[in-house]
């Protein structure tokens, strides 16, 4: 039976949502529900919906993560960065390009970690910049390592 909006709201309302269980329960039909929840005024619920969307295959789910990347709300951008690792490479790179220059160490760390070996020219430029200019030694090291390993 398809999962409902209310059921997703209940599952994601937990302090510690069980994402693997949600992934098993949510089919493609859940993507629109997650889009709705990702726009909820409860920011924590919205962040969890963004991450949950990344666990579902399909363009709609990818759009949910992309929309969060463009948000003015820092927690939504962080959730989008958390979600990157679950996206197919093309979508991951597209969203990563939105996020990588936000100058938020938490976001930078998650984005760099999530990147695969096939970088877009823009991502490669951003990684080179972070490798030398990031305020975080961790991000500089991660960026250098990613550039070295590609």
């Amino acid at each position: 039976m398809p999962i409902t909006l209310d059921e997703l709201r209940r599952l994601l309302g937990s302090d510690e949502p069980d994402y693997p269980a949600i992934e098993l329960m949510a089919g493609p039909e859940a993507a629109e529900h997650l889009r709705t929840l990702a726009r909820d005024e409860n920011v924590m619920l919205a962040t969890k919906a963004v991450y949950a969307a990344s666990l579902i295959e399909g363009a709609t789910a990818e759009d949910v993560v992309d929309e969060a990347a463009a948000s003015d709300e820092p927690l939504l951008r962080i959730a989008s960065a958390s979600a990157l690792v679950n996206l197919p490479e093309e979508a991951r790179n597209r969203v990563a390009e939105r996020l990588i220059d936000t100058e938020d160490v938490g976001v930078e760390k998650l984005v760099v970690r999530a990147l695969g070996p096939n970088l877009t020219p823009r991502l490669e430029r951003s990684l080179n910049r972070l490798a030398t200019d990031s305020s975080s030694a961790t991000v500089r090291d991660l960026s250098r390592s990613k550039l070295h390993d590609r």
Binding site: D15, S82, L110
Partner: peptide, 30 residues
């Protein structure tokens, strides 16, 4: 500020270092 993946908090902790993380958007009761 936040956890990866997004949670309100998480009580998993290393042995001998009891504690929990609480995210900035947590509830009064988290």
């Amino acid at each position: 500020q936040a956890t990866n993946p997004p949670l309100n908090g998480c009580a998993a902790h290393p042995g001998g270092r009891p504690g929990a993380v609480v995210a900035s958007g947590a509830s009064r009761w988290t």
